[in-house]
Amino acid sequence: MKAKEYTFDASYQPQVRTKTDTSRIMLDVIIALVPAMAFAVYQFGFKVLALLAISVASAVFFEWGYRKLMKKPGSINDLSACVTGILLVLCLPVDAPLWMPVIGTFFAIVIVKQLYGGIGKNFVNPALAGRAFLFFSWTATMTSWAVPKALGGVSVAADAVTMATPLSILKEGGDIAAQGYDYLDMFLGFMPGSIGEISALALLIGGAYLLIRKVINWRIPVAFIGTVAVLTFIFPRNGYANLDWMLYNLLSGGLLLGAFFMATDYSSSPVTLNGQLLFGFGCGALTVLIRYFGGFPEGVSFAILIMNLCAWAIDKGTRGRQFGVTKEDLKAAKKAAKEAKA
């Protein structure tokens, strides 16, 4: 081959890139959610699959349709819409009607995500915002919890038997031990609750996968869960022992789902490393405050939504140490600026 005929591109550095791209990251999130989804199907039956299919299909459809309508480049290949669709279902109760995720994903994808410019631009977590929208529109449906298979329940039917979640029992001062499930059951997921939140084990497996794949780092989940653990351990309520109260609080509700999969949402959480710690602390503290003093037994989703709104401000206030700049340098610079003003 003669070299003469070739033309060469002027390209920009660097000339190589890592293999991991956006769709690979989103695929990893989906993989990490497989254990939770599988356990939900086992526990609540095939209705979960129907909800998931409808939710993912509608989320992708809205993403595609909006971009098409607005003549913007297509973005369904990045799989982020699939993740939103899955996460929305995971925080619904299994008795939610099949049309519900359609409305939820419309709100999540179109209003929360695309109106602000699509992936990376939304300032609150789309799936959580979609859930919040459904929660306030159909509160009764969103707070009735089918009895899971393990506790002898028959869910899915219109007149399904429902039971209280551990969190509402805790809130009302009831006795969890009398409900027919112990710590191990709660850890494995044999208790009532939202579709994807019940099994701590499945969520921990997924979270570990995300950490190993470096999709997320430890800061937000550890700060979030750690804060809840410390606060609930120090301030037990309703006559519970410290440790019991802490463990019940950690194992019930959407804490693990929220800490690993929702609070770590890239576009609505801080990007600075210290900011991520602060964000996790905030989520944990707000979760405990809402659980203790709010009108509803669960506070994870609202805690995250509130902290989402602070993410950008946190970023600005928690910038990392620049190479070559010591604390003394910063102090000196501050002093100089003050003197210049005076």
Partner: peptide, 17 residues
């Protein structure tokens, strides 16, 4: 498309954003 993952911050040897 920036997805705001912050992976650029974790790798910057100069500690920039």
């Amino acid at each position: 498309t920036c997805i705001r993952c912050g992976k650029c911050i974790t790798v910057c040897p100069m500690g920039l954003e």
